[in-house]
């Protein structure tokens, strides 16, 4: 037995090889190691971007942002987290108790699960489905439904309105988003994530299909409900939208949800249009995270500058512009690659 558990030659730090190994001990160990690594990545990313967003928006607004806790206020979010978790957990009497309690944790776990389906490097990936990217987008489309249920469970009118809006937005952006992904599928001759990245080794898809990138970026903003599509939270209209009656621990979870979804969105854009981990010199995972970070910074800058769109104009925009653009992009992809 001891012989079996020694690291076989050639596997080294290759988590993928462990997971795919025929030895169940290695396989389970590999999966656990992968989950821990990804959890650390999500936590660090969420934390750093939670802080960076505050700092960057403060910079745009000529403020300082957090400065007091830690160097450059880096520990401010941690202090806030402690405060939020230490607060009383109040569940309104009129709320649907079970759904209220499980809704938010379920949403967070779904978004983390989706990150787990993604590969981070050739040597760091858990799954390798033939239709990997489609599975991710299908599950991603279910999140507004879950969100609707969670918001509905608080039985607050503001939450109701925000949940309705959330589902309405789903109608307008889901189709263009899937069409943009389909164009990538045509270009890569398949929906396997690793093969999509491999297909971009000669040139990233952003060069061949700029329209698809634009469509995917905009629809991803809508999917993540970041400004200008933040109708779900709409703080100047709906107080806090679906979070109006959520007590502090759930609010902390929702913040974590936002940033983990931001990571997910940036990673998906990186993989589909910017060649994933492809890049010289540095290790693949550094390339992937660096590209995703740059996209996240773009998402943050948009938040600082734009105003909120109205629900009817989002629907109009989705059907009038995004859908035709994504169809044109599909045709272009067919002409170039098929």
């Amino acid at each position: 037995m001891t012989n079996n558990l020694q690291i076989p030659p050639g596997m080294g730090l290759n988590v993928t090889a462990y997971i795919n190994s025929s030895n169940p001990v290695y396989s389970v160990g590999g999966i656990i190691a992968f989950a821990i690594i990804v959890a650390i990545i999500i936590s660090i990313f969420g934390y750093v971007f939670g802080w960076l967003e505050r700092k960057m928006i403060a910079k745009v607004q000529h403020r300082h942002g957090p400065t007091y806790v830690g160097k450059f206020g880096i520990l401010q979010n941690f202090a806030d987290l402690v405060k939020l978790l230490a607060k009383e957990d109040i569940i309104p009497d009129s709320a649907e108790r079970t759904l209220y309690i499980i809704g938010m944790p379920l949403l967070v776990s779904v978004s983390i699960f989706l990150v787990l389906l993604l590969p981070f490097a050739p040597s760091l990936q858990a799954t390798n489905f033939a239709f990997g990217i489609l599975i991710i987008f299908v599950i991603l489309s279910f999140t507004p439904i879950l969100l609707f249920i969670t918001a509905f469970s608080t039985s607050n009118k503001f939450a109701d309105i925000s949940a309705q809006r959330s589902v309405l937005i789903l109608l307008s952006y889901e189709l263009p988003m899937i069409l943009a992904v389909a164009a990538v599928g045509i270009a890569a001759h398949g929906y396997n994530i690793a093969s999509i990245i491999d297909a971009q080794s000669s040139g990233i898809f952003a060069i061949f299909m700029p329209l698809g990138l634009v469509v995917l970026f905009i629809t991803m903003l809508a999917e993540l409900e970041r400004p200008p599509f933040d109708l779900r939270e709409a703080d100047s209209e709906l107080i806090a939208g679906w979070l109006t009656d959520m007590s502090a621990p759930y609010y902390a979870l929702s913040l974590f949800l936002d940033y983990s979804r931001m990571l997910l969105g940036s990673l998906l854009i990186t993989i589909l249009f910017f060649g994933g981990w492809e890049g010289p010199l540095l290790p693949p995972i550094v390339w992937l995270l660096a590209k995703a970070s740059i996209i996240s910074i773009f998402i943050i800058i948009i938040r600082a500058t734009t105003v909120r769109m109205r629900i009817d104009s989002i629907l109009k925009f989705g059907w009038k512009w995004l859908l035709p653009l994504s169809l044109i992009n599909l045709v272009i992809a067919y002409i170039i690659f098929a």
């Binding site: 928006i57 745009v60 100047s236 209209e237 734009t306 909120r308």
Partner: peptide, 13 residues
């Protein structure tokens, strides 16, 4: 600008 949903930028300016 805050009322129509901007994230406090014009407000601070």
């Amino acid at each position: 600008c805050n009322d129509i949903g901007q994230m406090f930028t014009a407000f601070m300016w």
